[in-house]
Computed example of a mutant assay.
Amino acid sequence: MIKCGVVGLGDMGSGLAKNLIAKGLQTAGFDLSEQRMNAFTEMGGQAAQGPADVGRQVDVVFVMVMTGDQAKAVILGDGLASTLQPGSVVILSATIRAAEAREIADGLAGSGIDLIDSPVSGGFPGAQGGTLTMMAAGSDAAMEKARPAMEAVSKTIHKVGTEPGMGQTVKACLQSLIGGVFSATFEAAVLAAKAGVPGQVLYDVVSTSSGGSIAANTALEKIIDRQFVGTGSQISTMHKDLTISLDLARELGVPLFTATAAMQLFQAGKTKYPEGDNWIVTRVLEEIVGAELKR
Rank of each mutant, 00 (worst) to 15 (best):
S210K: 07
S210M: 11
S210H: 03
G211L: 06
G212W: 01
S213V: 07
S213I: 03
S213C: 08
S213A: 05
I214Y: 12
A216S: 15
A216R: 11
A216N: 11
N217E: 00
N217M: 03
N217H: 02
N217T: 03
N217R: 04
T218M: 13
T218H: 09
L220S: 00
E221A: 03
E221R: 13
E221N: 12
K222T: 09
I223Y: 01
I224Y: 15
D225E: 14
D225I: 06
R226S: 14
R226M: 09
R226K: 13
Q227V: 10
Q227W: 00
F228G: 04
V229Y: 00
V229E: 13
G230Q: 13
T231E: 12
T231Q: 10
T231R: 08
G232W: 08
S233G: 15
S233R: 12
S233V: 12
S233M: 15
S233E: 15
I235D: 09
S236W: 13
S236T: 15
T237D: 00
T237N: 07
T237P: 01
M238Q: 02
H239E: 04
H239F: 15
H239C: 00
K240D: 10
D241V: 09
D241N: 08
D241H: 05
D241E: 02
D241P: 05
D241R: 04
L242Y: 08
L242M: 09
L242I: 09
T243K: 13
T243Q: 12
T243R: 11
I244P: 10
I244Y: 14
S245G: 04
L246W: 03
L246Q: 05
L246D: 06
